[in-house]
Nucleic acid binder design. Structure first.
Length: 425
RNA sequence: GGAGAGAUGGCCGAGUCGGUCGAAGGCGCUCCCCUGCUAAGGGAGUAUGGGGUCAAAAACUCCAUCGAGGGUUCGAAUCCCUCUCUCUCCGCCA
């Protein structure tokens, strides 16, 4: 949520900033609504004040044993006027909330201009793209050759965009998860958390998935729950309605969960393989920090995600998303894109965002310096990493001519000492 | 699933027959005093959100909030209804 005072007092400035991301704010409608709000609120509060004064006078008179009937005369009329004023105010506020809840975050000053993916800016690159003396296979061919990937079985069990992993591949995915969790907890100072894989409306509103993006979610029929599209939702919501002591911050959480996405808008895209699934594993990094620390924390968190790729020896590049390509709640986002030899292109494997106070305001997540008023915290998160896509990257980058796949050194310990998955293709 | 108890400020906890209760008391925190320092002690202050005067700060003032939502009433933390959550016992269960 954008600071409502900023929105009220400087709507044209907000409109200018949101225009950077291609969002059109109707300033005139906003001003009209604000004018109505002001009148309705003033009137309601004045009527409430006189009602309160009258009630107080009656109470005082009764306490002194005085006659009260004259004080109570004429009350009914006021009560009607108050009810009307309250109804008007409630409808204005509801309209305001709906409008405000639908506004995306204001892009940070240093976010590049641009309308879409093509305008994202490469910040840096790491690693060497592998040069194979043979034609590189993609992860589907490799996985099937290893008898570890069974998409047909998954289609039978559930449908398209699901996967069954077996044997070495199933273990490799588990190894990746363990490796990432250990790295972030041991070396990057994160606390591991385990959370529900379903979340309620309040939680999804807090992080920004609701009310606008419900079609991206799986809802549980007959229950007030949604399957989480990312651990960001439950983990960031740990901060909801909290007042932390400033000294407790920053909080750093790492969390492995499955993620569930309807991919409603992606029909026909990435239909082959593990790239875009209804269910995938992800290790997520979440930070709750003091406002002045969030820019630095964002760089650090991005570095923590990069460390995973570096330890695995996977080449990647860091992209600064342009204003038009950023997610709804983000003020600034870096995407990490890993190189996939199977398709000779870079694919998103992590998205690291600073939400500043946008989520915190929706969440009512605050921190207090002793003796001072609570202040909204800043929230950040990033994938560290998307495990399914990391599995794809390992298969494609570590493949050998016969269809076998070497195990990255960092994972050998997690694979019980195995150094290679052998293909029988 | 059955029976019962509960939800009050940053935390704990009191709220009498509905009225002067945004709420006693304690802890914590902030400032001051005292002591050579520390500990102990004394004093004062300390909920959150929103509105108006005003574009902003200070100040003043008003409104809302005692789990959530409705209702009764001139007036609700207090009475009634619904819901949510927590706890205890019983049953069932990985």
């Amino acid at each position: 949520m954008i600071d409502p005072r900023f929105l009220r007092n400087q709507p044209q400035e907000v409109a200018r900033l949101l225009a950077r991301r291609g969002f059109c704010l109707d300033v005139e409608a906003l001003k009209a609504l604000e004018a109505r709000r002001k009148t309705a609120q003033k009137q309601t509060e004045d009527l409430q004040a006189s009602r309160n004064a009258r009630a107080k006078a009656i109470g005082g008179a009764k306490a002194r044993g005085e006659e009260v009937a004259t004080l109570m005369a004429g009350e009914e009329d006021d009560a009607k006027r108050l009810a009307l004023a309250q109804a008007e105010l409630a409808s204005v506020l509801a309209a305001w909330d709906e409008l405000a809840a639908g506004l995306p975050n204001i892009p940070a000053e240093d976010v590049p201009d641009g309308a879409g993916e093509a305008d994202n800016v490469e910040i840096r690159r790491w690693g060497q793209e592998p040069a194979f003396a043979f034609t590189a296979r993609d992860h589907v061919d490799l996985g099937e050759g290893l008898r570890g990937l069974d998409l047909a079985a998954a289609a039978k069990l559930a449908g398209s965009r699901f996967a069954v992993l077996r044997a070495g591949l199933a273990r490799l995915q588990r190894a990746l998860i363990q490796f990432m969790l250990d790295l972030h907890t041991r070396e990057h100072g994160y606390t591991e958390v385990y959370v529900p894989y379903m979340a309620n409306r309040d939680s999804l509103f807090g992080t920004g998935q609701l009310p606008k993006f419900s079609e991206d979610l799986f809802a549980i029929a007959g229950q007030p729950y949604f399957l989480i599209p990312t651990a960001e939702v439950p983990v960031t919501n740990l901060a909801r309605d909290m007042v932390y002591a400033r000294a407790e911050l920053p909080l750093r959480f790492v969390c492995h969960t499955p993620c569930f996405r309807s991919e409603a808008g992606a029909a026909g895209r990435d239909t082959r393989g593990l790239i875009r699934q209804h269910q995938f594993e992800k290790v997520e990094l979440v930070q709750i920090v003091a406002p002045e620390d969030s820019a630095r924390a964002h760089e650090e968190l991005t570095g923590h995600a990069e460390a995973v790729l570096q330890r695995l020896g996977l080449p990647y590049r860091v992209m600064a998303l342009c204003a038009g390509d950023m997610g709804f709640a983000s003020a600034k986002t870096y995407d990490l894109e890993v190189y996939l030899p199977g398709s000779s292109r870079y694919r998103e494997i992590s998205s690291c965002s600073n939400f500043r106070d946008f989520q915190a305001r929706r969440l009512n997540a605050r921190a207090r310096t002793p003796g001072q008023k609570p202040e909204l915290v800043h929230t950040l998160n990033g994938s560290g990493l998307a495990v399914g896509r990391t599995l794809v990257a390992v298969l494609e980058n570590y493949q050998e001519e016969d269809g076998g796949v070497r195990i990255p050194e960092a994972l050998v310990g997690y694979m019980g000492g195995e150094t290679r998955l052998a293909s029988d293709a």
